[in-house]
């Protein structure tokens, strides 16, 4: 059932991206081009999504378990660290170069875009590099310590949001 919900959610997400115009990288770049002929549409996509999402996440904050009994995986961290800042800045540069972020990239795959395939392949490579660097960073230290001495933070370091 969890997989069915995920499939339907992904499908609705993708249809929303197409309807909202965000599957078209040229339209995304037209939003990011403030001093050119500006297309404010992307701000409306964000507004629509956040309006609906705010209700859902207010509700989700009160749940102990999901409606299907799964644990609620809500990131608890509130610290703004160097990784967050540098990562977000880098992402902004990549987004500005092609006008493609991860969600629309996958929609482009389904639309049969060759450049979409190139983008996704490069993105996966980038994510793979991150994964390898993370393991190198955390493993030697974690392995040297007995399990009882590990701090909780070290074990969840590899978890995503």
């Amino acid at each position: 059932m969890v997989n069915v919900i995920a499939l339907v959610s992904g499908l609705i997400f993708g249809l929303g991206l197409i309807l909202g115009g965000m599957a078209n990288p040229a339209k995304v770049l037209a939003f990011l081009d403030l001093t050119g002929e500006w297309d404010p549409s992307l701000a409306f996509v964000m507004a629509g999504a956040i309006a609906v999402g705010s209700v859902a996440f207010a509700l989700a904050g009160k749940l102990k378990k999901s409606y299907l009994g799964a644990p609620m995986s809500l990131p608890a961290s509130r610290t703004i660290d160097k990784r967050l800042v540098l990562g977000a800045l880098a992402f902004g540069i990549g987004w500005g170069i092609a006008g493609i972020c991860p969600g629309p990239a996958l929609v482009l795959l389904g639309a049969g875009s060759v450049k979409g395939v190139v983008f996704v392949a490069a993105m996966l490579l980038g994510m793979g590099v991150f994964e390898i660097l993370e393991r190198r960073r955390s493993n030697p230290e974690v392995q040297r310590k007995p399990i009882a001495d590990r701090k909780a933070g070290e074990q969840i370091a590899l978890q995503d949001h």
Partner: peptide, 27 residues
Amino acid sequence: AFTPWASLAGGALIGAAATLLILFNGR
């Protein structure tokens, strides 16, 4: 090029998708 209504509706769909995933799957 500006598509306020389609973009707002598309955004609402994205919000609905996120709603499904968090409330049913906790993700």
